[in-house]
Amino acid sequence: MSYFLTQVLNGLSYGLVLSLIAAGFAIVFTSTGVLNFAHGSIVLLGAYLVAVLHPTIGFWPAMLVALFGAALVGVLINALLVRNLADPEPGAAAILMLGVDIVLLTELTRRIGNQVLPVGAPWGASVVRFGDIALPTGRVVAAGVTVVAFAALWYLFSRTDLGVGMRAAAADGPTASLMGIRLSRTAATGWALAGVLAAVAGVFLTSFPSPGVAPTIALSAFAAIPAWVLGGFDSVPGAVVGGLLIGLTSALVTGYEGDLEHVLGAGFGEVAPYVVMIVVLLVRPSGLMGSKEAVRV
C-alpha cells in the first residue's frame, strides 16, 4: 500500500510541475491563438538563468531575475515576431515558434555545453517523510507553489478587469476590441504569465530529483503537451487536470511495469500519456475542459 501511495505522490507531484508548463501553453493559446512550440526553450531559459546567477546573487534573487527574464522574452517574442506576422493564421505562428525554439535552444545548448548546471535550490536533495513515504522536498515546495500560482491565476481571470479582458479577447477578439479592450495588452500579459510559469516549472524540473540544467530539459517540457491537449487547448483548469492525470498515469504505469509488461510491453510508461490523451480525445474531441468553439474555427 505504501508503495502504491509512493507512486501516487510521485505522479501527482510531477504532474503539478507538468501542469505549470501545460498552463503556459494554454494561456498563450487563449491570449494570442499561438501554438507556442518555443515554450520548452523558455522553460530551459528560466532554469538556466537561475543556474548561472545563483552562485553570485543567491537563489531567490536569481529566481526573481529568471521570472522577469522569461516573462520579458515571452513579451518580446509576441511584440517583435507574432504581432508582426502578415498572416495571423495559427499555422504560420506555429512555424515561427518552431524557428524561435531552434534559435533559443541552440544558443542555450552552446552556453550549457556538456555540463549539468545545478540550480542551487535551498532544499537541495532533502526529503520530506510521511510515514514510510519519502517525497523530495523540492516536489513538496513545487506542489505548494503550484497551488498558489493557480489560485492567483483563478483570481486574475475571474476577479480582475485585466483577466476578464483576456478571457473576452480569447472568446472573440474583434468584439472585445470594439468594447475597448486593448488586445495588445491582453496578449502581452498572456505571454508574460506563460514565461513566469515556464521559469517556475524550469526550476522545479531541474532541482532534485533531477540533477540540474541540461539541454534535454527543453524536451522534457514537451511531456506537458499531452496534458495541454487532453485538458483542452484553451483551458487553464484543463491543463491542471491534464498535468495531474499524465503525471499519475506515467508514475503508476512505470511503477507497475513489472506486472503490466506481459500485457503492454516494456517501456509503456513513456507511451502511456499519449494513449491517455488519445482515449480522452476520442471520447471528448475538444479535451476535458476545452471550449468547443476553439477547435471548430
Partner: peptide, 16 residues
C-alpha cells in the same frame, strides 16, 4: 525499466 532521454526525474523508476 525502459526510459527515454526526456525522462529526467526517475522517482517512479527508482521506487519500482
Amino acid at each position: 525499466q525502459e526510459i527515454t532521454s526526456q525522462t529526467t526525474d526517475l522517482s517512479a523508476q527508482a521506487s519500482a
